[in-house]
Simulated scan of single mutants.
Amino acid sequence: MTTSGSTWSPRYLSYGGNNRTHMIRIPDKGRFECRLVDGAATLYLAQAGLLAAGLEGINRNLSAGNRFDENMFVRGSEFTDLQTLPSSLLEALRSLEKDELLMQTLGEAAAKTYLDFKYQEWDAHNAEVTSWEVSQYINV
């Protein structure tokens, strides 16, 4: 966490200039940074997904949408047409299952294996009682 209290993790499917509040940051000509991928991601799967999406966009001549040169932590909620990124592993898994391009890119066997492992991870996470839950719900 920064001294400002911001995590700098993107929340919206957006892009903008030299601004860490966007999913895609474009700090200079000929350079971009995908802020969606972090150390928790499986790098090879993330790269495959990014390449597949990029090639699909090129092949179908898709628009990247509007560039936002705004601080999305401060003003993001004002742009009601922007999609938000999943806020939990469960949301992310459900989004992946609905994404035909990514499911096709992974292939049926790899997608099933990945989803099985990640749903097991989600179930294990939910089986734990956290210290927050103890302090919130149990009067000692």
Rank of each mutant, 00 (worst) to 15 (best):
E108G: 02
G17V: 11
D99Y: 05
I58K: 06
R94S: 09
T3Q: 12
L36F: 09
D28Y: 09
V74T: 11
I58D: 06
W122L: 00
G16V: 10
E78C: 02
V74K: 09
I58M: 03
D38Q: 03
A127S: 14
D69M: 09
F32M: 15
Y15D: 07
L62H: 08
V140H: 07
I138E: 07
Q83K: 13
G76E: 13
M1P: 07
I58E: 06
H22F: 04
E97C: 04
F79A: 03
T2V: 01
V129E: 01
S131E: 15
Y137V: 03
Y12P: 08
Q83F: 12
Q104H: 12
T3Y: 08
V37S: 08
E91H: 07
F117R: 04
A52S: 15
K29M: 12
G107Q: 09
D123T: 02
C34E: 05
V129Q: 01
R75V: 02
V129W: 01
L62F: 10
A41E: 07
L55P: 04
R94F: 10
T7P: 01
R35E: 14
A64D: 03
Q120M: 00
D116T: 13
G30R: 05
T42E: 13
R11F: 08
L89Y: 00
Q120Y: 00
W132L: 15
Q136L: 05
L93A: 09
S4T: 13
V134P: 01
D69F: 07
M103A: 03
N19P: 08
